[in-house]
């Protein structure tokens, strides 16, 4: 079984408390993690995750929070039976000189065997790091700007005019 590790960091111009709380409130996560379709809470420390995988595949797993220190860190791991085994640690620490909070993420995936593992391996090898960085960037945008920057749905000369006039 192949395993993949991603480490990345971002600095967010908000207090460690704010950043931690936003992350801990799992319902925010699908807004900034592009591949996560839904998360449902199943108790104080347990949750059920559904993700969009390659080629329209849907992946799911149960996760459990294994460490939780207010304003400092959150760690989790998937429970047996996960489509993709994963565990991770996100640490929040004050950035120097009034720069907000450093978010350091460390995530490990263990890919299953077989066709699914191969398909996932292709995606992950092309840039699990990029994927996670994108997620953290969107998290930062939500925290700092209150919204995620986008151009999806804007006009261009590549579309035909739907309707004219305002």
């Amino acid at each position: 079984m192949a395993s993949i590790e991603v480490r990345t960091a971002v600095t967010i111009n908000r207090s460690p408390h704010d950043v931690y709380s936003a992350w801990r409130a799992l319902e925010n996560i699908p807004r900034f993690m592009r591949h996560i379709e839904s998360i449902s809470q199943a108790g104080e420390r347990r949750s059920h995750w559904v993700a969009r995988g390659p080629a329209g595949l849907r992946l799911s797993w149960d996760a459990e929070i294994v460490a939780d220190q207010e304003g400092e860190l959150i760690a989790w791991r998937s429970l047996p039976g996960a489509d993709v085994e994963n565990h991770g640690l996100v640490r929040f620490k004050p950035a120097p000189g009034d720069r907000g909070t450093e978010v350091h993420a460390l995530i490990r995936y263990r890919l299953p065997g077989g066709v699914l593992g191969q398909a996932l391996g292709n995606v992950f090898n092309q840039g699990a790091g990029r994927l996670i960085q994108g997620d953290l960037r969107r998290f930062k945008q939500l925290m700092e700007a209150g919204e995620i920057s986008t151009t999806e749905g804007q006009p261009s000369g590549r579309q035909r005019e739907r309707e004219h006039g305002r």
Binding site: A145, G146, E147, I148, G153, Q159, E163, H164, R166
Partner: peptide, 14 residues
Amino acid sequence: RVQQVPDPALLNPR
């Protein structure tokens, strides 16, 4: 080129 394109819409709250 000056082209006819769709009107822009609000995409974000700000």
